[in-house]
Simulated scan of single mutants.
Amino acid sequence: MLRFRSIIILLAFAAALHSCDKSQTAPDPDPEPPSPTPVKLSYGDSIFYNSPQSTDYIITPTASRAGTYIGFPDGIDIDAVTGAINITKSEAGLKYKVSFIPSGKTDTAVTFITVAGINYLDGFYNLSTSDSLINPIYNAHPGKDIPGINSGSLFDIGAGCNSNGCTVNVVNGQINLAETVRNGVFGNKPANDERKEFELVYSLNDNSNKANIRLKVKLYYYETVNDITPEAYAIIAERQGTMFLNGVNTPVATQAKVGKPRPPCIFIVGR
C-alpha cells in the first residue's frame, strides 16, 4: 500500500513539473513577423518598339495592383494609377525608370524600360578640336550599332533638317556641325547664344518595322568657351543622369532632379 502511494506521489510531482515547463506549452510572447514578400514590377520586357500602325501602342504591368506609378525622366507617357505606358506618345531613344508605390505602403518597386530609337548626347562640341560630327545613340546605349544602316533605315525623312541648313547624313543619322554652321544656320556672322531647333524624322529597320519617329534637336552657338552662358552650363548639369539610367559612366538619376532630356541640346563652340 505504501509503495502504491509513493508511485502516485511521484506521478503527481512529474505532472506538476511538466505543467511548469513554459518552453514546451506557452506561445512565444514576442514572435518575429513573417518576412513580407517584396513587391515586384514588370512589363514583361525591357525594350519596346514603336509601331507603324496609327493606333497607340500601350503596355501595362504584368500584375495589376493599387498604388502610384511614377516615370522618370520626362518624356514617358504613364498613367499614375494603372501604370499603363503609351509607347507611341513617349519619347523614343530613352531609358526610363518606372517606380511603383503600393497603396498603404512605403516600399517601392522599380524597373527600367527603354523605348527604342535614337538620341544625341547633350554637350559642348568645339569645332577647333575636331568635334564637328555628332553620331546618334541607339536605345540609350553608347556604342551600340544602329540596325539597318545601308539596309532600310532612313534619316531626315522629308528633309526637315537638311532643307533648313542642318546637315544630317540620311544613311546613318550623323550631324555635321561644322557644315551646319557654314550653311549659315546661325547667320553669316553667328552671334553668341544663337539657337535653332530642327525636327528630325527617321525610321529604323528594327522591330519597329520602319515606323516614322520624330525627334527635335536644338543647336546653340558660341564663339569661344568664354562666351558660354550660365544657362548652358545649367542645362547640362540638370540633365546629368537622365539619358543613361543605371547605365554607362553616368550616375543613376533621382526623381528629385528636373529630368528633361528632350530635346537634345547641342552646344557648338566655334573656336
Results as ranks from 00 to 15, higher is better:
3 R>Q: 14
8 I>Y: 11
9 I>P: 00
11 L>I: 15
15 A>R: 10
21 D>F: 11
23 S>C: 00
24 Q>N: 06
25 T>L: 10
26 A>H: 06
28 D>E: 13
28 D>C: 05
32 E>T: 12
33 P>L: 12
34 P>M: 05
41 L>V: 09
42 S>R: 10
43 Y>F: 11
52 P>H: 12
53 Q>C: 07
54 S>Y: 07
57 Y>N: 14
57 Y>I: 08
61 P>F: 11
64 S>F: 12
68 T>A: 03
71 G>P: 11
72 F>K: 02
73 P>W: 05
76 I>H: 03
80 A>K: 15
85 I>S: 14
87 I>H: 02
88 T>G: 07
92 A>G: 05
97 K>F: 00
97 K>W: 00
98 V>G: 01
99 S>T: 12
100 F>Y: 09
106 T>Q: 14
106 T>P: 03
109 A>P: 13
109 A>D: 14
115 V>T: 10
116 A>P: 04
118 I>D: 00
122 D>C: 08
123 G>T: 02
123 G>C: 01
124 F>R: 14
128 S>H: 11
128 S>L: 12
132 S>R: 09
132 S>F: 08
132 S>I: 14
135 N>P: 00
135 N>G: 02
141 H>P: 00
146 I>D: 02
152 G>N: 06
154 L>N: 07
160 G>A: 04
161 C>R: 04
167 T>K: 15
171 V>A: 10
173 G>D: 02
173 G>L: 02
177 L>R: 02
177 L>C: 05
189 K>E: 13
190 P>I: 08
191 A>S: 15
196 K>G: 04
198 F>S: 04
203 S>E: 15
203 S>I: 09
205 N>Q: 14
205 N>T: 12
209 N>G: 04
212 N>G: 01
215 L>T: 00
217 V>H: 05
217 V>F: 05
220 Y>S: 11
225 V>L: 05
228 I>K: 09
228 I>C: 08
229 T>N: 06
230 P>V: 08
234 A>M: 02
241 G>L: 03
241 G>W: 01
243 M>G: 01
243 M>E: 08
247 G>E: 08
247 G>Q: 10
248 V>H: 01
249 N>F: 14
251 P>T: 11
252 V>N: 13
254 T>I: 06
259 G>M: 13
261 P>F: 03
266 I>P: 09
270 G>N: 14
